[in-house]
Computed example of a mutant assay.
Amino acid sequence: MARLVLVDLTGLTFLSSVGIFSLVRAQRRAAERGAVLHAFGPLRRPVDRAFELTGAQEFLHLYPDRDHAITAAA
């Protein structure tokens, strides 16, 4: 089983393209090291909209809460 990196997005109220790029880059770097990155938290507007507009949800593993993120990695 791959190592799991969890990113807690709970409470996030703003996410710029730089933030999205950082998450995508972190996921890529985790994969290069044999790990998987799962981000979780209830995404509120405008954060969910930023993911939609950029299409980043197609590349990132996003989950509604920590339990789902951990279960998905099993």
Rank of each mutant, 00 (worst) to 15 (best):
A2S: 09
A2C: 06
R3Y: 11
L4K: 01
V5H: 05
L6R: 00
V7F: 10
V7A: 14
V7Q: 14
D8M: 03
L9G: 15
T10E: 14
T10A: 09
T10M: 08
T10F: 04
G11P: 00
G11Q: 05
L12N: 13
F14E: 11
L15M: 12
S17N: 15
G19P: 01
I20R: 00
F21R: 14
S22L: 04
S22E: 08
L23C: 10
V24K: 14
R25M: 07
R25D: 07
Q27A: 03
R29M: 06
A30T: 01
A30H: 02
A31D: 11
E32Y: 03
E32V: 11
E32L: 12
R33A: 15
A35W: 00
A35S: 13
V36L: 13
V36I: 08
H38N: 12
H38T: 06
H38W: 09
A39N: 04
F40G: 00
G41E: 09
P42V: 03
P42C: 03
P42R: 14
R44C: 11
R44S: 12
R45T: 08
P46M: 00
P46R: 02
V47T: 02
V47D: 00
R49G: 06
R49T: 09
E52D: 14
L53N: 11
L53K: 09
L53Q: 13
T54H: 13
T54G: 14
A56Q: 04
F59W: 12
F59P: 01
L60P: 01
L60A: 08
L62M: 14
L62H: 09
Y63K: 01
P64Q: 05
P64D: 05
D65F: 13
D65G: 05
D65H: 08
D65Y: 06
D65L: 10
R66P: 05
R66H: 12
R66T: 04
D67M: 11
D67Y: 14
D67P: 01
H68Q: 13
A69S: 06
A69V: 07
A69H: 06
I70P: 01
I70D: 01
T71I: 08
T71Q: 12
A72C: 10
A72T: 13
A73G: 02
A74D: 10
